[in-house]
């Protein structure tokens, strides 16, 4: 589904990603862990198409298409979904209106008619339940006045509505208390299918108690330095990131 080869990216002339290689297949959950400043958020930003980052080398192929040539909205329309670490507030634009616009833009891209209002509402109700999102939040402006936990839940709700092929969860656990974390993880698990895949980016191991990854990658200094089964996350939590630093001899 996703194939990243020797990806280099920099911001303001400073190289952050120094040759990332990653293969994600349909049905898989990949966890990417790493200390602060290792390039985790840069990777998600580059995949989603943030313009501040310059890709200097390498390629990203998503379902046979060159992802790096697409503007961000086309990446979304092709099925990439980024759950933001810090979701943005958009005053005055209701969640419902925002999602309807997004959904219909994506449909138009695929040559489909806009969704019938009643189908849209039915989907809205169904997916709200999935993340235990209060119906009131759906009618409020996008993320405006939401607590950090509500914003994160809203990201997963949007993901459920847009049904992406590849979801990238960028530190979705940060700022979530244990109860909210369980709800969010539960939502993500329910959305899992043999046709889609997800990349879970996190600093701490806690989230991976609830979303069980197939593969764990450790990102350090712009490179994936270690890949292993889910137990690797526990080992990392126990020994701390210093053990990686020692192991790679940085």
């Amino acid at each position: 589904m996703l194939s990243i080869k020797n990806l280099h990216a920099s911001i303001g002339g400073k190289e952050i990603l120094k040759g990332i290689n990653l293969e994600v297949k349909a049905g898989e959950v990949h966890a990417i862990m790493g200390p602060n400043g290792s390039g985790k958020s840069t990777l998600s930003a580059v995949l989603a198409g943030r313009e501040e980052y310059e890709v200097t080398e390498g390629e990203v192929i998503f379902n046979g298409k060159n992802l790096l040539e697409m503007p961000p909205e086309d990446r979304a329309r092709e099925g990439i979904f980024l759950a933001f670490q810090y979701p943005v507030e958009i005053p005055g634009v209701s969640n419902v209106n925002f999602l309807k616009t997004a959904l219909n833009e994506i449909r138009a891209y695929k040559g489909l008619e806009p969704m019938e209002a009643k189908d849209f509402l039915a989907r809205l109700k169904e997916k709200q339940k999935l993340v235990e999102l209060d119906g009131k939040l759906a009618n409020r402006s996008v993320n405006e006045g939401f607590s950090g936990g509500e914003k994160k839940r809203n990201e997963i709700f949007q993901m459920a509505m847009l049904e992406p092929k590849l979801a990238i969860l960028d530190e979705t656990d940060s700022g979530l208390d244990i109860d909210a974390l369980r709800i969010v993880a539960n939502g993500v698990n329910k959305l899992k299918s043999p046709d889609n895949a997800s990349i879970v980016i996190t600093h701490y191991q806690r989230l991976l108690d609830y979303i069980i990854p197939d593969v764990v990658h450790i990102l350090y200094n712009g490179r994936i330095v270690k890949t292993g089964p889910k137990e690797l996350a526990l080992e990392l939590e126990e020994k701390g990131y210093d053990f990686i630093k020692e192991e790679v001899g940085a």
Binding site: G49, P71, E73, P91, G92, F98, A102, L103, E105, S141
Partner: peptide
């Protein structure tokens, strides 16, 4: 960017935001 990453292009995004406001 947030709007774009949900599949909404620049012009529509500005319209959405300003009219929403």
């Amino acid at each position: 960017f947030y709007c774009k990453s949900r599949g909404i292009d620049n012009e529509k995004a500005i319209g959405l935001i300003v009219n929403g406001y």
